[in-house]
C-alpha cells in the first residue's frame, strides 16, 4: 500500500459514523403523483384518494422508491430544526475526488419499509455514514461511501422507512 493510500484509508474511516444531517419533510400529493409518472407507473392508487381507500390505505401511498425524492420536494425551510446536525462527510471525500475527475455512480440502494409512506405524512430523517472504503477493479479506483437514513413519523416517532445509499466514485 502506498503512503497515499494509507492516508486515504484514514480519511475514509474518519467519516464512518458521522451524521449526514437531519431533515423534516412533508409528503405531498403533487410530487407523489409526478413521481409515479416518472417511474412509468399508471396505477390510479397514486393519483386518486378513492383508489387508495378502496385498497385499504388511509391515504394515497408513495411509490416504493419515492423516499429518494422526499428531500428534493418536501424539505421546507421553516420545518427544519435549528439544532439539526449538519455537515457533509460525503462531500469531504467525494468533493476532492471529483475535482480531479472521474464519475459518480450509484452502487446500491436499499429500502426497509416499516409502513407505506403516505401523502400527508410529515417525516423526520436522520442520516449517517455507515461505511467508506476503496477497491481497485478493472484498472479503476472505486471509492465507496454508504449512508443510512432512518425516517420516522414526526407525530408518533414510529419508524416508517430506512434507506441505505451506496455511492461510488470511479476514476
Amino acid at each position: 500500500m502506498s503512503a497515499d493510500a494509507s492516508v486515504d484509508k484514514e480519511l475514509l474511516e474518519s467519516i464512518i459514523g458521522q451524521p449526514t444531517g437531519r431533515s423534516t419533510v412533508v409528503v405531498e400529493r403533487g410530487p407523489v403523483s409526478f413521481f409515479a409518472d416518472a417511474v412509468v407507473d399508471p396505477n390510479p392508487i397514486y393519483k386518486d384518494p378513492a383508489a387508495a381507500q378502496a385498497a385499504g390505505l388511509p391515504a394515497i401511498p408513495a411509490p416504493p422508491t419515492f423516499p429518494i425524492a422526499m428531500e428534493a420536494w418536501g424539505k421546507f425551510a421553516e420545518l427544519q430544526p435549528e439544532d439539526a446536525p449538519s455537515g457533509s462527510p460525503l462531500l469531504k471525500i467525494l468533493g476532492p475526488l471529483m475535482a480531479k475527475g472521474g464519475l459518480i455512480l450509484h452502487g446500491e440502494e436499499e429500502f426497509i419499509y416499516h409502513r407505506p409512506v403516505l401523502v400527508g405524512d410529515q417525516l423526520v430523517g436522520d442520516g449517517k455514514v455507515v461505511d467508506a472504503y476503496r477497491k481497485e477493479s478493472k484498472g479503476k479506483t472505486m471509492t465507496f461511501v454508504v449512508t443510512e437514513t432512518t425516517w420516522v413519523d414526526a407525530k408518533t416517532g414510529d419508524p416508517v422507512v430506512t434507506a441505505r445509499f451506496n455511492v461510488i466514485h470511479r476514476a
Binding site: V40, Y46, G56, L57, P61, E108, E109, Y113, P116
Partner: peptide
C-alpha cells in the same frame, strides 16, 4: 423505480417490507 412498478403490480402497493438492488 421501473422495476419497483413491476414488483408492486405483482405483490400490491403498500405491502413491501424491503427492496434492495
Amino acid at each position: 423505480g421501473l422495476l419497483g412498478t413491476a414488483i408492486t403490480d405483482f405483490v400490491g402497493v403498500g405491502n413491501l417490507t424491503r427492496y434492495k438492488v
